[in-house]
Nucleic acid binder design. Structure first.
Lengths: 134, 134
DNA sequence: GTAGAAGCTGGAGTGCGCTCCAGGTCAACC
DNA sequence: GGTTGACCTGGAGCGCACTCCAGCTTCTAC
């Protein structure tokens, strides 16, 4: 099964321009071409794109994705380094999640404060409704 | 207690340039100045900076932080809108955490694969050590 | 009273990750 | 065989969030 660039874009969630851009910078291998010179993405290409988008979503910088992409060409001998990249990246994702959860507590605290303000205002309005326009 | 811009930078974790930049774009109120025209940050200024960095860490775009910052000047009447911003932002942070956790599973799966490759290679090397150079 | 550190301003530059564009080719349908 | 639409290329442009710079002032310490 092969896919046009438009189909690959739709399935990967990347734009057509981004697909060509990723190819230019060496993040994806140049896909096959049809007789007219148009890109034909394979299922493997799409799988790689899917994985790339996970790395991107988790904030891996493009230069690191590129290093990983290029290591794949070296076969099994680069598996150690590739694993190392993923392990380090996983650690950074875990850190990031923890950081977000920390901030979440602050948000919750602030929101609770606003809710208290609201309930105080409600009380005021209930008891002194004419004060509402002051 | 007041703080020079260098002290404010150190305590907030932002750079001196970023503090001036935030002031320029209306994210922070212009702090007091000393007789020589230098900025004197107050404790409240620092608290606001601390909160801003939480918003930034959680990926709130500057234009939204600015909206929030400007609403503060309108007093209690803007509390509803401010709460709304925070509630919506909290939702987006929760989504983001979920997204990261989803990607984490893929990372774990890949890393497990690499570990299996490693253990297979170990087995090969143990049984056919001369094959290591092939 | 002078050297050096810290701060000031307005504005230009940077890095990232795309995104858009002009001008052209190619294939399919009427 | 002409039109339409998808795709091609190289290169320019963009939005974000800073970051850096030149040239100047001000405070502190000697």
């Amino acid at each position: 099964m092969t896919y046009s660039i438009a189909q690959a874009a739709e399935r990967s969630g990347l734009s057509i321009d981004t697909l060509r851009y990723y190819e230019r910078i060496g993040l994806v291998d140049p896909p096959a071409r049809d007789a007219g010179g148009r890109r034909n993405y394979s299922d493997e290409d799409l799988q790689w794109l899917e994985f790339l988008t996970k790395l991107r979503t988790t904030g891996m910088p493009i230069r690191m994705m590129r290093e990983y992409a290029q290591l794949r060409h070296r076969g099994v001998g680069s598996a150690g380094r590739r694993k190392q990249i993923l392990v380090e990246h996983r650690a950074s994702v875990l850190e990031r999640i923890a950081e977000l959860q920390g901030c979440l507590e602050v948000l919750n605290y602030k929101i609770t404060n606003y809710e208290q303000i609201e309930s105080k205002m409600d009380t005021l309005l209930t008891h002194y409704p004419e004060g509402a326009t002051a």
